[in-house]
């Protein structure tokens, strides 16, 4: 596990420049370019708001903002997983023709999506102001929640990216799995609307705890439940550890299998 972390630290310059490249490239060639970084989550929010506050009528005050608080961290998570899954395969020549530390590629997907998440925060703040939800002092807890999410996501992405090189079914299964995960995580609806006998699902779902924490900080202006976050962090480290194990198990075979 530590060998990977040390290696990642050693090539931090490489990671930073590749992350910047990804961020710049995401909307490369489109007319609106960088503006899409803001427009995309905005449009996504509009779609869900129309469906869930007009058609399905979820009763939450300031629903668009409520939704947005949960949606943007989720987009960071899900896009990282889906892009990360085939990051090694997409690496192509980098893996097969130069001596390149493969763990850099999944790391870059997680961090470039984190940058996109950070870029959509200003829109969120504008919305908070528009809906007259004040921005609270709990905001200082935000980086901590982000770190926990980053650790957990890194672990998962390392795992799926390595496995996907050998079993390319994974990227196809993942698409559906992520949708399932999305709907079972309280993003579109509040935690309170889950039936009591199903509450355990969101207890064992680390994303539910994280989304709840984001919402506490941004929407309810209160500090999150530190105990639950602590447990999630431990679980995140466990997943990170497992991800590294899986990745190290397969990494030498990448140049032959990609």
């Amino acid at each position: 596990m530590f060998s990977n972390v040390i290696e990642l630290y050693r090539c931090r310059v490489l990671i930073v420049s590749l992350v910047l490249k990804e961020v710049k490239l995401r909307y490369y060639g489109s007319v609106l370019g960088f503006l899409w970084t803001f427009l995309n989550p905005l449009l996504l929010m509009c779609v869900y708001t129309i469906v869930f506050s007009t058609f399905l009528r979820i009763k939450v005050e300031n629903y668009p903002v409520f939704l947005f608080c949960g949606l943007i961290p989720w987009v960071w998570f899900s896009t990282s997983i889906l892009e990360g899954a085939d990051s090694i395969i997409r690496g192509g020549d980098l893996i097969t023709r130069v001596l390149f530390p493969p763990q850099v590629l999944p790391t870059v997907t997680v961090f470039s999506n984190m940058i996109n998440f950070v870029f959509s925060l200003p829109i969120l703040f504008i919305f908070l102001l528009l809906f007259k939800v004040k921005i609270g002092g709990a905001l200082i807890a935000l980086p901590i929640v982000m770190i926990i999410q980053a650790v957990f996501t890194m672990g998962l992405v390392l795992m799926v990216s390595a496995l996907n090189v050998h079993f390319r079914d994974i990227q196809h299964i993942l698409g559906n799995l992520i949708i399932m995960w999305f709907f079972t995580t309280p993003i579109l609806y509040p935690m309170t609307s889950i039936p009591a006998n199903l509450k355990f699902i969101s207890r064992i779902n680390p994303m539910a705890t994280l989304i709840k924490a984001y919402r506490d900080i941004l929407f309810y202006r209160q500090f999150p439940n530190w105990l639950l976050l602590g447990i999630t962090l431990c679980f995140g480290f466990l997943v990170f550890f497992l991800g590294n194990l899986v990745f190290n198990r397969y990494k030498e075979s990448f140049p032959e299998e990609v």
Binding site: K21, L25, G29, D93, L94, R97, V98
Partner: peptide
Amino acid sequence: ASLIGVGIGFHPGF
């Protein structure tokens, strides 16, 4: 230094 493949990681848009 390996000249096994040149121009790897180049992106046409940059």
